[in-house]
């Protein structure tokens, strides 16, 4: 696979939810791709299906039809167990509400995804310390999430997302719960992951400031994608 090949490739993806007898179509025949090393922002009105699309790419939801290929592998045909293993190795998650384990320290939270890999305790320690250094939280690693601010918790979550060195990073409104100052810090961090570590990032956001950091912005409305570039929105 060359550098120019897309890392994410969606073909004719459709998805709807059932509410009782009612069928709610969410995504309608979506086809698009994301290049390796890309930083993409997904925008659109509430309920337009942004989270749904992100979840399909990240392998935590199932398509009704179509295919989702990540790094050349079609994840729509995988079993639940294979998909779990695949996620552990290939996807880093950043959530709006951080989703840290409250009973684990910052260090232990970052270490958590590594416990599913076979690497030694010493190697784990190196990885975790490095990841915490990237998010500039080495001095808080023994603190529990409850002892950290929202911005700090999100930084721990980012360290957890990158510690396994995943193929893609997905972020669903990573600044949605933060004040402007913290949001900016988080966006600088995410931007840095893309620039310095060359991570492919797919980010859902409502915040135009956050979206500005992305290379590409795509709008989702009523289940259909139309593309716009940052310069167009300015």
């Amino acid at each position: 696979m060359g550098d120019t090949d897309p890392i994410v490739q969606l073909r004719n993806v459709s998805k709807s939810y059932h509410r009782g007898n009612l069928v709610v179509p969410v995504l309608n025949n979506i086809t698009f791709e994301i290049a390796n090393g890309e930083f993409l922002a997904l925008m659109g009105p509430s309920g337009s299906g942004k989270s749904t699309l992100l979840n399909l790419i990240a392998g935590i939801d199932k398509v009704d039809s179509g295919s989702v290929e990540i790094g050349g592998i079609d994840i729509t045909v995988m079993s639940e167990t294979d998909l779990a293993h695949w996620r552990a190795a290939n996807v880093g998650f950043i959530f709006q509400f951080y989703n840290l384990m409250p009973v684990l320290t910052a260090y232990e939270n970052v270490e958590l995804p590594l416990t599913l890999t076979g690497i030694s305790r010493r190697q784990r320690r190196e990885h975790v310390e490095l990841a915490l250094k990237v998010v500039n939280l080495s001095h808080r690693m023994d603190h529990y999430p409850g002892q950290l601010s929202g911005g700090e918790q999100q930084r721990v979550a980012i360290a957890r997302a990158v510690v396994t060195d995943p193929t893609i990073l997905v972020a669903d409104e990573p600044t949605g719960d933060l004040d402007r100052q913290s949001a900016e810090e988080i966006m600088d961090l995410i931007d840095g992951l893309n620039r310095q570590l060359r991570k492919t990032i797919i980010m859902v956001t409502h915040d135009p400031r956050a979206a500005k950091k992305a290379h590409v912005i795509r709008h989702l409305d009523k289940g259909v994608l139309d593309d716009t570039h940052p310069q167009d929105t300015l």
Partner: peptide
Amino acid sequence: RSEHATLKTLGFG
């Protein structure tokens, strides 16, 4: 519930 979902997201079976 959301903690279990998070663990599953991270690949815990």
